[in-house]
Amino acid sequence: AELPKPSSLPIEVTANQLEADQQKRQAIFTGDVVAKQGDVTLYGDKMVVYQLDGQEQVDRLEVFGHVRVVQLDRTATAERAVYRQVAETLTLYGNAEVHQGQNRVAGDEIIVYLRENRSLVKSGDSGRVKAILFPQQKQEQQ
């Protein structure tokens, strides 16, 4: 499963409530949070945006509760997701699953390396990574 590179496009966020905390340089959105960037949409109950010290740039976004990431025919779900701007990775935690057409991959942790077009699915101590994949299906180039 693969998600887009966050290019310079702006991130629009809508939520029921926004609470900014200047000294911690955090913005906390709660209630039906929807974050869109390009053709990627991030849904969740609560999202915390962390900014780098002393800069306007976003360090990382963290989404909690019923996390869902949608891009074209691909959706990913998890309990928690962390998007790291610098490393350009999106990590899904807590029975994370990615669906694309009939393909389905599930594990305890899914890391998507956006710049390297690669992703890694890990299982926790007891869990196993499980995937149902269909051969010969071309992956749409993003």
Binding site: A1, R118, S119, L120, I132, F134
Partner: peptide
Amino acid sequence: SPLPVNLEADELSYDKE
């Protein structure tokens, strides 16, 4: 007919290239 592949492991990585 391309039957589905069930893959199970401790760790799985995917390289789109």
